[in-house]
C-alpha cells in the first residue's frame, strides 16, 4: 500500500482514473448544467493527466539535449517528451470545447431562465 502512495507514476494513474470516473458520474447524473460541464472538464483532464503520466520516468531528467552531454547517457535517462507535447494540444482543444459549451449554457439560461438540464432539454419536442 505504501509503495503505491510513493510511486508517483502509479499514483498519477490512479488520480487520472478517479478524475475520469468522477467526471463521468457528474456528467451523467448531475442535473445542473454547469455541474455537468465541470464533470466534462474532469473527464478531459483525466485523459490529459493519463497522457502526461505516460512520459514520466523515475529519476529522469528534462528531455533537452545540451551540448557536452553524452548522447548514450541522455537517451537512457531523459523523460519521454512526446506525451507532454501532445497534451499541450489536447488541453487547448479541451479548453475550446469547454468555452463553446459554457457559451451554449449561457444562451440556454437566458432562453429558459433555469440551469436544470432536465427542464432545458425536456420541454423541446
Amino acid at each position: 500500500m505504501m509503495d503505491i502512495l510513493f510511486d508517483t507514476q502509479l499514483a498519477s494513474f490512479f488520480t487520472s482514473a478517479a478524475f475520469i470516473i468522477i467526471g463521468l458520474f457528474a456528467a451523467i447524473f448531475l442535473d445542473n448544467i454547469i455541474k455537468k460541464i465541470i464533470g466534462i472538464a474532469f473527464i478531459e483532464e483525466g485523459a490529459n493527466l493519463f497522457l502526461v503520466t505516460l512520459g514520466y520516468k523515475p529519476g529522469g531528467i528534462v528531455p533537452i539535449f545540451l551540448p557536452g552531454m553524452n548522447s548514450e547517457w541522455f537517451a537512457a535517462n531523459s523523460a519521454y517528451a512526446l506525451p507532454h507535447a501532445l497534451v499541450l494540444t489536447s488541453v487547448v482543444i479541451g479548453a475550446s470545447t469547454l468555452a463553446v459549451m459554457l457559451a451554449i449554457a449561457m444562451v440556454l439560461y437566458k432562453k429558459h431562465g433555469t440551469l436544470s438540464t432536465s427542464k432545458i432539454l425536456g420541454d423541446e419536442k
Binding site: L24, A27, I28, T117, S118, L121, G122, E124
Partner: peptide, 12 residues
C-alpha cells in the same frame, strides 16, 4: 427519442 438521459444511458 431525443432525450439526453436515454442517449447517455445507451452510450454508457
Amino acid at each position: 427519442d431525443d432525450s439526453l438521459e436515454k442517449m447517455v444511458f445507451y452510450a454508457i
